[in-house]
Design a protein around this nucleic acid. Structure first.
Length: 111
RNA sequence: CGAGUAAGCUAUACGGCAGCGGACGCCGAUUGAUUUCGGCGGAUGAGGAAAGUCCGAGCAUCGCAGAGCAGGGUAGCUGCUAACGGCAGCCGAGGGCGACCUUAGGGAAAGUGCAACAGAAAUAUACCGCCGCGCAAGCGGUAAGGAUGGAAAGGCGAGGUAAGAGCUCACCGGGGUGCAGGAGACUGCACUGCCAUGUAAACCCUACCCGAUGCAACACCGUUUGGUUCAGUAAAUUAUUAACGUCGGCUCGGCGGAUUUGCUGUUAAAGGUGGCUUGAUCUGUGCGGCGACGCACAGGCUAGAUAGAUUGCCGUACACGACAAAACUCGGCUUAUCGGCUUAGUCGCAUU
RNA sequence: GGCCCGUUGGUCAAGCGGCUAAGACACCGCCCUUUCACGGCGGAAACAUGAGUUCGAUUCUCGUACGGGUCA
């Protein structure tokens, strides 16, 4: 990905859950917040409730791919956490584009 | 043609564009250094169960001063194997017309415990009954019959008897002894004679096996901080067949005197690197063995991540794609699973 | 990734291989009260699942499913 690195620090995750803005859908919730860095940081979560390893890995792959294909639309300098929900099990990447466009609009407005 | 049995193989396929993981090569920058960063390229990248973690091993660390007890496991025999609770062949038992399948399958005359309810009685004490004696009450004999039960004095038939009883005999079943066969489990034959329920996935006994902990092991590098662990040394206090610590849980026994404070070195600690994939390896051929498996030769290198890599879009084909994702590595077991294919036996029906 | 436990009415829970499987709260019906509560009487309701051992299994053994704990 062009200007995005992965987000690994659990402190940042909890800060986002507490203080970040969010946009929700039946299949995914996104939390975002400015980070004052020249890149975006992306974290993806798929909890145990979702299913077994196969299901969770697939959810993560689909979210990562959908983000990658829409990367140009987002403002730079944000931490983003995508949380997978039940609905994602039966979705394909291009079915999520509507949601990701809404997210991009919200983020640009907030800026 | 139908039904059924056993063994094995396979796990959507092909193509285009974009993307991800770890190597490799080339180019550019950088560094003491293939050090670090970027770009490009063509290869390569999850399973038969990767799962459950039920066994067994490798590897690593700890302990090595031992002995006994305790604890855990296995249980027909002979083999295979690095090892196993696995596998193969065979034996016994059970099931199926058969191909074939199942089998925790040592010991109950070493000891202890338990066997509810029912039943007269549960391992032996006669309720009804039967027979003998007696007027009767009752006494004696008797396990054939009744009734209870999972189990009631080996079963059944004949002889025998007052009535009965392995009391005697034939057959079946079981125990013991002898002989023969086999590597052995065991099998066959002969003689003898019914010595006495079940439960050992109840305690237990017998034989054999087992050190503990696990890659979050462990080794190395190491910042802020900190002064924990270990070693050496100095001082103080206390003590000397003792107490305390340690040697897996206990006992004996062994070893070290112990505690506090100071100093010196070492170590722990965010994080990083190694461990991490060439191996009891895979493929093919030949040979040995009924088989599990072994040996020889030739060839191959086939994921190594660390928030954790296989995706998205599209085209074509059909049977329209199940269960499911490596995390130190192997050998098994168990469980989940859409289907498809191959081979070898069996039974039934029909035809020649 | 490794290791260790548990599963019994709606909930919390006892249970020596032999029961009709305790008990409490909750629920239902009746009584008490002017009524509600308290109290009294009665009732319905369960051994996670599949095999095995045993005459007999909630209990013993093995497999499976689910839930929980623990090690950085």
């Amino acid at each position: 990905m062009l200007y995005t690195v992965s987000l690994k620090d659990s402190k940042v995750f909890s800060r986002l859950y507490k203080k970040g803005r969010f946009v929700a859908d039946s299949s995914v919730v996104a939390y975002y917040m400015q980070n004052k860095l020249p890149v975006n940081r992306l974290g993806i979560t798929a909890g145990k409730k979702l299913g077994n390893a196969v299901t969770r890995n697939r959810a993560k792959r689909i979210l990562r791919e959908a983000y990658r294909l829409n990367e140009m639309n987002y403002p730079i300098g944000y931490d983003i956490v995508l949380v997978a929900r039940e609905g994602i099990k039966y979705k394909k990447t291009n079915e999520l584009f509507g949601y990701f466009n809404r997210l991009a609009k919200e983020m640009n407005k907030a800026k």
